[in-house]
Amino acid sequence: MSTVQNSPHATGNSFVHRLSPLTKLTFAVTVTVCAFAVVDYRWPLLLFCALLLPAAIGAKVVRRFLLMLATFWVPVAAILFVIQGFFFPEAHDVIARFGPLELKSEGVAYALLTALHILVLMGGFFLLLLTTHAATLMSALSERNVSPSLIYIVSAALQIVPTLSRRATRILHAQQARGQVIHGLRGRARALVPLVGPLILGAFTDVGERAAAMETRGFGATRRPTSLITVPDSAVQRSARVAMMLCAVAAVTVNVWGVMR
């Protein structure tokens, strides 16, 4: 339950943390696009080693960065090597045999390339979320004319999980006060049903009150609201973002042209 609540919020104070969230978002997108644009396994590896890893070291989040990659990337890469190494369609060049299974070089090459692409994709966005508080990203987006409804939906969803887990504790306590005893694994499973029901239904029935509160406070007014938090930004970052976007657009254009040809 506490996954969203305990999401790795940015707490450090390095130069990467102080960058505008938009710069980091643009960086994550650009680096992903560039990684996928070139069919050579050394290219995404270079991007990871020359850009993402130094950035993570510079932000002093390298331990958590590698830990998250180990949790989420390593399983995907392992499955990828098994599936494509043995079952890559129309591969002929056998390098090794394990019983009836044949490891083929085309499959391994493909798995290596794809795994490194995914590594850059995940690395770029892990860097963003390790060094950026979601609320700051939302503030930065709201300064850029993104719809306030969208900002509200994302911010509220991030905040509801702690509220829900508080309510879950309260429901459990209320049921125990009425004599519910929880013993062992089966007891826990059985206690889940009377917990989930009131929890989810209660969360939904709160919606009406919250909507009324929002409307009385001017939500949905057509005038453009001002922002309480101003996110620092600079001319250098602005031009860096434009350069990165041009890079990404160029990579996509060359690619689309290459595929269509």
Partner: peptide
Amino acid sequence: VARLPATTVALLPVAITVNI
């Protein structure tokens, strides 16, 4: 998102949480 009434906007975060 641009066309949603306030009740729906309030509903979405709860639904997203249920998903997650």
